[in-house]
Design a binder for these strands. Structure first.
Lengths: 236, 236
DNA sequence: TAAATATGACTGACTAGTCAGTCATATTTT
DNA sequence: AAAATATGACTGACTAGTCAGTCATATTTA
């Protein structure tokens, strides 16, 4: 459909593709298969990042359904069509966003599983990592998105479980098991590491809903939790 | 979201609107027509319930934005327009749904705060109530909706906090305080009753996202949690 | 090196559809 | 019959996704 060109064609400022003398053109047939110019590649990566950043803002402010790609584009200072050069569709953009933000946190937690240190100390370190790397960053918003929308994206939930949660819990279990053997920690925690991570979830959900109504001192709550779990226990 | 806010006559938060003179509609607190013919009132209440039930299905399956009122109507076996005889708009329907489902659970929990029984026993009773009245009912879905969408409905979050959470936590605090004084329970819990309720949140979120991937025995998890919290403790 | 040519990233007007909310009409109740 | 209810076709605001066209930059040719 001819849309309607507003711009008057500039009377051939620069020659449009006139096939011109066939002989000469035929010469350089094949394309050089070289790496794309650095400039373009870099620009491309920047664009992608800008889109993801804008998407994070919009998605966490309005939710997946209500977020408008027009707004994402505006926020990223690009045209809407450009988004589709980088992501197949809205859903893919959403999923890529979560994947991109969540993947990096895995390594850090996993490494902790190895260290052979008193469990309580490890727990306190994990709490610090959580507060600093998740709760005080945009990752908190990403996890909130996961919690809010994950149900409608089973693939995403699976990814999150497989790539993030199960690994963290694996590490956690190792720590807790060692701790339980030394009597530092109740045995039940080994079976339900969720109980160890629960305050992190509470923190994210609570602050999302009631930050103004009833502020929560997340760090202190997590400390209290650790103090309870790792308190010296009587023999049972 | 609502596209255009027209005058939106009549239709309060609940009850069929009296379309009559616009003035009359907004009139008194209580309905003008008290003790309406049984048949009518009953039918009306049924309709309202049917709509709410259908809305719960649709909202929890698709989320607030994606849920279609056409589907709600179909599910309730009524015409779409009928919904608007009972609820002002989609948002009101949503909020009424949450209010209606959540309000009843308050009483039960609050009553527990009074009983003078060992804290652990109370905790186990609360767990039973939670499992039976929340986790094994549709209320679990309602709370999931609250968690997922609450952020975009600050009024609703406030209602939930004021009418539900703060009351439950009040009762919880009373129990925990007594328990702490008797040394049954660590003192930190009094300051952060959230730590007591955390497994409930974990249960709802976890089963929503990972039910298939990694089933969770909620009852046992909650029991483990109670066992940890109420384990005999060494003097500190 | 400069001019000519080719590339593909980028744009945004546009299409095709969706769905909340309305209202003229129909049905039921009194 | 009149009033109260219910219906569902209809409207129009809104938006995901498309694609013909542009233009800055890269590549080739002279």
């Amino acid at each position: 459909m001819a849309k309607r060109k507003k711009a008057a064609k500039g009377a051939g400022t620069s020659g449009p593709p006139t096939k011109k003398g066939g002989a000469a053109a035929a010469a350089g047939r094949e394309r050089k298969i070289e790496i794309p110019p650095a400039g373009r590649a870099a620009r491309s990566a920047d664009r992608r990042e800008a889109i993801l950043a804008a998407a994070l803002d919009e998605f966490s402010e309005r939710g997946f359904e209500a977020a408008r790609l027009d707004d994402v584009a505006r926020r990223a200072s690009i045209a809407k069509g450009t988004i589709y050069l980088y992501f197949r569709d809205k859903e893919t953009l959403f999923q890529e966003l979560l994947r991109t933000m969540l993947t990096p946190i895995i390594g850090g937690f996993e490494a902790l599983g190895q260290a052979d240190v008193p469990a309580k100390q490890l727990a306190e370190h994990m709490r610090d990592v959580f507060v600093k790397e998740v709760f005080e960053t945009r990752r908190k918003d990403v996890i909130r998105l996961m919690i809010s929308e994950g149900r409608r994206f089973p693939k995403l939930a699976e990814f999150y479980y497989r790539e993030v949660l199960s690994r963290i819990f694996e590490a956690l279990r190792a720590i807790l098991k060692r701790g339980a053997e030394r009597g530092e920690v109740p045995e039940q925690l080994v079976e339900f590491p969720q109980l160890m991570a629960a305050p992190g979830l509470v923190a994210i959900v609570w602050t999302g809903l009631f930050a103004d109504l009833a502020p929560l001192d997340v760090r202190r709550m997590m400390q209290a939790h650790i103090d309870i779990l790792f308190a010296p226990r009587s023999l049972s």
